[in-house]
């Protein structure tokens, strides 16, 4: 349970890093690299969220017998 809270801060950290990185890249004229960094950040966070949704749906399926 504790590691869930760490994951929240990890996602926020990734988000802030990606935001700063894309801004820096944009100012230095490399707009497309900024977009690439943003997409990779979103992909990483999406994988983490989907794994969490997977566990949530498994738990709900076991509690509510939703087969």
């Amino acid at each position: 349970m504790g590691q869930n809270i760490d994951l929240i801060f990890k996602i926020a950290g990734i988000g802030i890093l990606v935001a700063v990185a894309s801004m820096v890249l944009k100012n230095s004229g490399k707009e497309d690299y900024g977009l690439a960094v943003t997409l990779t950040g979103i992909a990483v966070v999406l994988v983490m969220v989907i794994q969490m949704l997977g566990t949530l749906f498994d738990e709900v399926k076991s509690v509510f017998k939703l087969f």
């Binding site: 869930n4 809270i5 994951l7 929240i8 996602i11 926020a12 990734i14 988000g15 802030i16 990606v18 935001a19 894309s22 801004m23 943003t38 950040g41 979103i42 966070v45 999406l46 983490m48 969220v49 969490m52 949704l53 949530l56």
Partner: peptide, 21 residues
């Protein structure tokens, strides 16, 4: 809220994650 203005999709993913937790 911090992420909302720079990267809205990340803010949404974060809110989904908190809801799931």
């Amino acid at each position: 809220m911090i992420l909302k203005y720079q990267k809205p999709p990340l803010a949404m993913l974060l809110s989904i994650f908190v809801g799931v937790t």
